[in-house]
């Protein structure tokens, strides 16, 4: 039967115990992840099972690191995500958070698009650092994402998206994420992209400002492949700001929809 040890295919003749495999493959391991879950008990391994042996605090060899980083993923998910292509349009409070979550999830190709630079008022909710003030957001996010997950193909494009460049910018991805700030740009991207790319999934957001209950954030499904996240009411305006906690919840609802779409769970 075939099992996977640290993501490598291993043939074993009969079902055996985890402890036997650990002794053979990594006797000094102190963390055992069995089918995505850390276990302390000695279990019998069956055909198709995935086991990771990890030595706490040890920097693994480069060829193993990518897989060890995904050891806590639900088995089978990593390969599907690795083959997916996603574009994030806008790298502010929504987009920078979405980018980080999708990088951690191991999406194989992430296209990052913004025209703006990092400035101090971004730092209350956007995933940048003080020493990145003045950098293009595309450069800054790339720097940060490569530290989180270097095993991804990133493409960062410094451009203002308008209805004339949507087709050229987005034709090669499976999923388009709308993460703009301005309402007008959100509506423009979603309606134009849905017309150009009927087969692609489009995930937008509207109504993420303030500090209202996060359970007000809903997912509205439009034509077969368009999803909008938000409370559809609370806009950024004088007296109502954009806050890290609530914007990040909305961003991660968007990111979770991306992943669920790729895994065909939507």
């Amino acid at each position: 039967m075939t099992i996977f040890i640290n993501e490598k295919k291993v043939e074993i003749e009969t079902p055996c115990m985890i402890s036997v495999l650990k002794e053979k493959y990594k006797s000094n391991a102190d963390i055992v992840v069995y089918n995505g879950h850390i276990v302390s008990e000695d279990l019998k391994v069956n055909d198709g099972d995935s086991i990771f042996f990890i030595k706490r605090g040890e920097m693994p060899p480069e060829e193993e690191l990518e897989f060890l980083m995904m050891a806590r993923h639900t088995p089978g998910v990593h390969k599907k995500l690795k083959n997916a292509k996603v574009a994030i349009c806008g790298l502010g409070g929504l987009g920078s958070n979405i980018a980080i979550s999708l990088a951690r999830m191991g999406i194989g190709y992430i296209k990052l698009i913004d025209f703006d630079i990092v400035e101090p008022s971004n730092l209350n909710r956007q995933q940048y650092f003080i020493d990145q003030i003045g950098m293009y957001k595309t450069d800054a996010i790339l720097e940060n994402l490569k530290k989180i997950n270097p095993y991804i193909t990133y493409e960062a494009i410094n451009i203002y998206i308008n209805k004339d460049n949507i087709e050229n910018l987005l034709f090669d991805v499976d999923v388009i994420v709308e993460a703009f700030d301005k309402a007008e740009n959100k509506a423009m991207l979603i309606s134009n992209a849905s017309k150009l790319f009927r087969e692609k999934c489009i995930i937008g957001a509207s109504g993420v400002a303030g500090l209202y209950d996060t359970s007000l954030l809903k997912v509205k499904k439009l034509s077969s492949n368009v999803y909008i996240v938000g409370d559809f009411e609370n806009e950024a305006k004088p007296g109502q700001g954009l806050m890290a906690t609530r914007v990040a919840v909305a961003a991660n609802i968007q990111a979770n929809l991306v992943v669920r779409y790729i895994l065909e769970e939507l």
Binding site: G90, G92, G93, L94, G95, A179, F180, D181, K182, A183, E184, K186, A187, I190, S191, N192, S194, K195, G204, A205, S206, G207, V208, A209, K220, L222, S223, S224, V226, I228, G230, F232, E233, N234, E235, A236, K237, L242, V247
Partner: peptide
């Protein structure tokens, strides 16, 4: 009825009896 209508066609697209119409008004912030 499941099709997103482009802005350029808002003036000459008529709504018919029993149509299912979804209007999503976007608000700013992100």
């Amino acid at each position: 009825n499941g099709d997103i209508i482009q802005k350029d066609y808002f003036d000459n697209t008529f709504i018919k009896e029993n149509d299912k119409v979804e209007v999503v008004r976007f608000v700013g912030g992100g």
